[in-house]
Every structure is written in structure tokens, then in C-alpha cells.
Simulated scan of single mutants.
Amino acid sequence: MAVILYARVSTRDQTLEHQISQAEAAGFKIDEIVADHGVSGVKHRLRDRPEGRRLYDKLRAGDMLVLRWVDRLGRNYRDVTDAVRHFIRSGVTIRTVINDMTFDGATTDPVQQAVRDAMIAFLAATAQAQAEATRSAQQAGIELAKDRGGRFKGRKPSYDRATFQTVREMADLGHGATSISKHTGLSRQAVLRIRDNPNLAEAALCRWGI
């Protein structure tokens, strides 16, 4: 059985090292890393990415696909659900670092299959919704920074863009502020500021060019 970590690395919100270290800290023993750099999870289907395409040829029955979260596969509902179901049908087990979720074809019970498929659909929909919300927050942050003319930056944020994304994702999944604080190393107050007013948090990142 091969354990393969797939990482999608955008230019601003993630790094490959961050995704690898999170997986290793969660106890995964990674045999191989497949990574796409600088590709959009909204615009590029998994099959259309140079490395994402390799997963369809590489993964075999009994293998494990590790993802930081399902949004690494993409941020398009249909693409993500199609990809996950394809791999499951092929006998691949999918596990996520965040929330330690497992998706596989082990069960033959139709009710359990329905629950599994509903969870896959929910996570895929959340990934797309979160991407749309992030775009809105980014635009609001840029406009706010323009309105202020860059004259007052305020205090430099205690978080980078990767941590900002992690807080948003975990909050969307229902994690409490204390749990997110422990996971990210941010103060609970910083987590609450990001969770409750992402536009202002995004504006702070834009003002500092983060």
C-alpha cells in the first residue's frame, strides 16, 4: 500500500512545506508527494493539472490518498465530488489531515454509503463556498486598503495568509475558537477577529502585502 500526499500550492495561501509538516505531525507516513504549484482550485480541474492528472494513473486499489483538506483537490463542487467518488470506486482510501476524516468503499450498507456521500458533497460544497467568500473578502480588503491610500497600516497581523485560510476552513467546519487557537498557535482573540470579521482580517493582510 502506497501513501501519497497530494498538495495543491497556491501562490499566496499555502506552501508545500506547510502541508507536508501538518501531515507528518498528524502521524502520516508519506511514501510519495504529488504537488501542483500555482494552480487555482476553482479554474483548474484535478484532471487538468499537470500533477493532479498523475493521481488517476498512479493510485491503485489499497493505496491511501492524504489531503490537508478536500479543498486541495479543488474548490469546484462537481469536480471534487467526481474525483473523490472515482478514487473510492477504484479502491483508494482518502484521508484528510484536518478533522482526520476517512472516505473509502469499505461499507456495503446503503445507509452508510448515503451518509458518506452526503459528507463528501457537504465538504465539496463548503470548499466552493469558502473560495467564493474568500474572493469577496479579498476584494473588500483591497478596496478598503485603496480607500485608506496606504497611509495607515495599523498593527501587523499576527497571522499569515496560510493561517488565515486555516482559520476560515476550520470555522466553516464548525470548530470552536479554542480548538482553532490550539491548532494554529494563534491567540483566541486573533481567531475570533478572523472568524467574525474576515473582511477586516483580509484588509490587514492586503495593507501589509501579505
Rank of each mutant, 00 (worst) to 15 (best):
P110Q: 00
V115C: 05
V97W: 03
R72I: 07
S158R: 14
F122L: 15
K156Q: 14
R85N: 14
R95L: 09
A137F: 14
L67R: 00
A106R: 14
D109H: 06
Y159A: 01
F152H: 10
E143M: 12
A124Q: 01
R116D: 07
V167D: 08
V70E: 00
I88W: 06
G74L: 05
R72Q: 08
A118H: 11
K156V: 10
F122W: 12
R72P: 00
A127T: 01
A133R: 14
M101D: 08
R89E: 13
G150W: 08
V167M: 09
T134M: 13
I120C: 01
L67I: 04
A127I: 01
R135M: 12
P110E: 09
T107D: 02
R155K: 14
F122S: 12
R148Q: 15
T134L: 15
D71C: 04
T81M: 10
T107W: 07
V97N: 08
V70K: 00
G154L: 02
R151A: 15
A127K: 04
Q128D: 10
M101R: 13
G74R: 07
V66A: 07
G105Y: 05
F164V: 04
D104R: 07
R151C: 02
V111H: 05
A114P: 01
Q112C: 01
A133D: 10
W69Y: 11
I94E: 07
A118I: 03
V70P: 03
D109S: 03
D82W: 03
K153V: 01
Y159F: 15
S136A: 15
A83D: 02
T102V: 15
F103T: 04
I94G: 03
A125T: 09
M101S: 03
R135C: 06
P110L: 10
R89F: 04
A127D: 01
T107M: 07
D104H: 05
K146S: 11
K156M: 13
T126F: 00
D79S: 10
D71H: 04
L67A: 02
D100A: 13
T108Q: 14
R75W: 01
Q113N: 11
A133N: 09
A114K: 10
L144G: 12
R72W: 04
